[in-house]
Design a protein around this nucleic acid. Structure first.
Lengths: 360, 360
DNA sequence: CACTTGGGTGAGAACGTTCTCAATCTGTGG
DNA sequence: CCACAGATTGAGAACGTTCTCACCCAAGTG
């Protein structure tokens, strides 16, 4: 392959055995803590190991036991605070039970995601936590499951996949947030989804079928919840108030400027993540408008800055760390042989009322 | 070990060879792309592999090649935006050259860090990027290096360790930031370090030796730079203006309240990371003070919210992603056999002047 | 004394690759 | 037709563990 075969200087169990004057089998037993070994042999082996600085080779161990004690984690972008916090939860759960974490960023890129699935399969990870880029990857994911590697989906769902899922009830959470804005007297509420261009027509004019299909995705479910609240309040959803122009802060800022330039501009905005909310705040500053007196704002995710800025931001807080930890635990249960029916765990969200949403 | 030996259902190269009617050696050559194989054999093997859904076992490959194509990454806390961004840089650099990343959080805990070093050694990672908790871990780190696993230190340094390091010039950056506050007419500048209790006396009354010794750590170097600026400006450093009361936002808020309650309170604050800056902002809000009219604020790290809040925060921006990417590249060079002298790479910082620091 | 029991031991297989080496096949030049 | 270089091939070793199995031995048991 890549040329030079690197010879490590590390002593093998055979060397340790020789040094201790026993067979490799006995040395293995003493070091691995299985089988039965006399006190004398054990002490000789452990002393020899200590002397030589012996470190077991977990690759060889994995070859034979069939367990790598490694969990693969596939997320779009570890820089995203949502995923870095969730990863922390996953990693802690894994560590607690003696597992390590192999991390791959997918960049929301399907090709990359598939390649990563292949690589992690070749590495024989014991299981995978995946925040899939797209439901379109169902087959690739199912292939991994069929190969005997259990998967737990995080945040997003993929219909028809044999996997546990962990997330929140996005539709209900979004509906609740929207209702709170309506209750403050806002009749014209904008939605900033962060999805990409091609999503927008679907979001703004979804047939019933469309909503159902989109309901599978996080953004889609939240958009559906937003619609639910409007419809129940007897307000006709206005497509031009739904913006899906990109995930970056600048995209959100541009979208905000566009929204506020409308003939009948929104008096409140619901942003589907905290980065988008920053874009809104930035745009408001630029326009000389103030939050919440001119425009109310509510965002998903309780970012660390949400409470510290002026005005403190009202948010829909997800239990992100717990989401990750639960995914990790669920996965480890599977790895360790659980064959319960697949569960779809929904953890509760919490609306934190601060000062960015005010009566109209 | 942990009980059940899991038998994977995945076909081995031997099965593929049988299916294709060739020897395992030939199948290996066709699949691995080494040696020479006739067109006919290759096609038969690839077809058989495709048919059986063959996936090479990279554990077996690593056993023989001595390369796991895995980089270990040891950081205090992946949730910290600094480390999650740096990790992104490391991961991208690794991916680009066909490596994967095994991640461990150390929680600033020396015991955990040592255990993690052991685990990663057993996993035979090809190299390690470490943001060490403490210089006290020198021996444990050196042992890993001696075992043949190269290390690159990120952000922090460990004197006397055979390793490359990547970071910024903390002393110069802190001095520059302090000078800018002094240039605005501030004579009473506080420093929020975020270090823990036992650090404070050293920071506030360092003998020359003290400063030198602390210069090895990130916080210490920045504190030294802060002092440098004061001394050069002919201002006597006041120990009570240096606060090291914890890393969390609440700690910073409490420290800020304490500072502002002093008889001769600071008119400007330098916060050593963005989370601490949030604490300051929160405390100011609570006290009914405004930034920058009542208190000026400058912080390290250009957090994503820094530009979006009011007032936009003036910051010392580190090239965090590049720091990580550079560490990754340096490490991969070592893994692939470079034996250049150890380098200590300092990437340039950039002061971004926004609106949180104003004339007194 | 013969017979069982069970702790302790070592030889060698197994895991799934890549590597080494010698043997065979192919085509070319004389 | 022969010699020879080079491509192609397969048997078997190697990597470092754990697992299987047969064996030895001391201590009871009848």
């Amino acid at each position: 392959m890549s040329g030079s075969v690197r010879r490590t200087t590390m002593p093998s169990i055979e060397i340790v055995a020789k040094e201790a004057g026993v067979s490799t089998a006995t040395a293995g037993r003493a070091l691995g803590g299985y089988g039965s070994v006399s006190r004398k042999s054990r002490e000789a082996v452990l002393a020899a190991a200590e002397r030589l600085g012996y470190r077991p080779n977990s690759l060889a161990r994995s070859m034979i036991t069939g367990l790598t004690h490694t969990l693969g984690v596939l997320v779009p972008d570890i820089e995203n605070p949502f995923f870095s916090r969730a990863l922390r939860g996953i990693a802690d759960a894994a560590h607690e039970r003696g597992w390590e974490v192999l991390l791959v960023n997918t960049d929301e890129d399907l090709t990359l995601e598939r390649k990563a699935l292949g690589v992690l399969t070749e590495r024989r990870v014991d299981g995978l936590v995946v925040a899939p880029t797209d439901v379109a990857d169902r087959d690739a994911l199912q292939a991994v499951v069929d190969a005997g590697i259990p998967i737990v989906l995080l945040d997003r769902r993929v219909p028809g996949l044999d996997a546990d899922t962990v997330g929140i009830d996005n539709r209900v959470a979004a509906k609740d947030a929207t209702e709170r804005l309506l209750a403050l007297g806002h009749r014209s509420v904008a939605l900033l989804t962060g999805g990409d261009e091609k999503l927008r027509p679907k979001l703004s004019r979804p047939g019933l079928r469309g909503v159902e299909r989109l309901g599978a995705t996080t953004v889609g479910a939240r958009a559906a919840g937003y619609r639910d609240a409007l419809v129940e309040a007897g307000i006709e959803p206005r497509p031009e108030l739904v913006s899906a122009e990109g995930f970056r802060r600048e995209d959100a800022a541009a979208a905000t400027r566009r929204l506020l330039a409308l003939p009948d501009p929104p008096t409140a905005i619901l942003a589907l993540d905290s980065l988008l909310a920053l874009g809104v705040l930035q745009a408001l500053r630029g326009l000389g408008l103030r939050c919440p007196v001119d425009v109310s704002l509510v965002a998903f995710d309780d970012a660390d800055w949400a409470e510290a800025i002026s005005p403190p931001l009202s948010v829909v807080a997800q239990p992100i760390y717990e989401l990750g930890a639960e995914a990790g635990r669920l996965l480890l249960d599977r790895v360790q042989g659980s064959d319960k029916r697949f569960t779809h765990r929904r953890l509760p969200t919490r609306f934190i009322e601060r000062e960015s949403a005010a009566p109209r």
